[in-house]
Simulated scan of single mutants.
Amino acid sequence: MIRSLISCAVAGLLGYTATRAVLSSKLRGHRKVVRTNHAGREVSLVEGPAVSAGLVAGSLLIEAPRQRAASLLVTTVSGSLGAVDDFCESGDSKGLRGHLSALAHGRITTGGLKVIGIPVASIAAATILRTGSRGHGPVPSNAKSGDQNWLGSTVDVVVTGGVIAGTANLFNLLDLRPGRALKAGLLTLAFMPHQHGLTWTPGAAIAGSAAAAWPDDLGGAVMLGDTGANALGAALGTILAENSTGKQRAVLLSGLVGLTLLSEKVSFTSIIESTPGLREIDAFGREVV
């Protein structure tokens, strides 16, 4: 228990320190990272690399080797592919439907790379989480007599990967107003069930990174962009996937798929702004409207 508490504290400190270090760097004002936000104000995309760095730094302290490897893999890949989309964007396709349409016509866009790359990394991370000492491997030792178990394990890997990839995508959809994605991340951490071996250290890394970015994000000076939102969502998705039963993961995946499809039809911002409670939480602490 004491070791877990120390790991948790150090992970939070590493997440905070790494995030603040990148936020305070010369990269912040570089012309290639400056964009115009929804309010017509110039903001820096440096928060994305900063939060990604904090999440990776803090995740190094995760005690369970498989969870640590899975978290580092999917957070790094999701953040890196988000950075490609943020800073090397190609094509004018928008949204999941637009990226899939471009891929169907043989056009590879930076957004399309995310559509392919993040799910692949998520399945790889899910395989790490579900295989090995737990006995949940996709290929059982006695395949002839365990075909049904093999099928169930394979489905669980796919569902687990779907939860991780779906959460990464959902947080990208939320990053449309200052502080919204950070608040969603912290609320998710606050209301999920906690086990010290599974959630404390990775949760502390997320909390530390979010705390470091909070003032600048809520002030409208920086934004997560795809880099930070995808990395944050992937890190949270890994915790959710590891801290849930198979049935809970199936329910989570269904909800994530439903929200993704809903986002193609309606604006999350319009729903939030028209819903009492959500509207006030969303606006809390924000300096830029």
Rank of each mutant, 00 (worst) to 15 (best):
M1T: 12
M1G: 08
L5T: 13
I6D: 03
S7Q: 10
G12C: 01
G12A: 06
L14Q: 06
R20D: 04
A21E: 13
V22K: 09
V22G: 14
K26G: 15
R31Y: 03
V33E: 02
V34Y: 04
H38P: 03
A39T: 14
A39F: 05
R41E: 13
R41P: 07
E42Y: 07
V46P: 14
G48F: 03
V51W: 01
S52E: 10
G54I: 05
L60F: 14
I62Q: 04
I62K: 04
R68F: 10
S71V: 13
L73F: 15
V74A: 05
T75Q: 04
G79W: 01
L81G: 13
D85I: 14
D86F: 09
S90L: 12
K94M: 11
G95M: 11
G98Y: 01
H105R: 15
R107H: 05
I108V: 15
G111D: 07
G117K: 13
G117F: 11
A121D: 13
I123L: 15
A126F: 07
T131V: 06
G132M: 08
G137H: 00
P138Y: 02
N142G: 12
A143P: 15
K144R: 15
S145V: 12
G146R: 14
G146D: 15
Q148G: 12
W150Y: 02
T160R: 05
G162C: 03
I164Y: 09
L170N: 06
G179T: 08
A184T: 04
A184R: 00
G185D: 04
L187E: 00
T188N: 02
A190R: 00
F191I: 13
P193V: 01
Q195H: 15
P202I: 00
A204N: 05
I206F: 07
G208T: 01
S209C: 12
A212I: 07
W214N: 04
D216V: 05
M223K: 09
G225V: 08
T227S: 13
G228E: 01
A231K: 11
L232A: 12
L232M: 10
A235H: 14
I239S: 10
L240I: 09
A241M: 09
T245P: 14
T245E: 04
G246S: 08
G246K: 02
G246M: 00
V251D: 01
L252I: 04
L253S: 10
V257I: 12
L259S: 07
S263H: 00
V266G: 02
S267L: 04
T269M: 03
E273S: 11
P276N: 07
D282M: 11
V289Q: 08
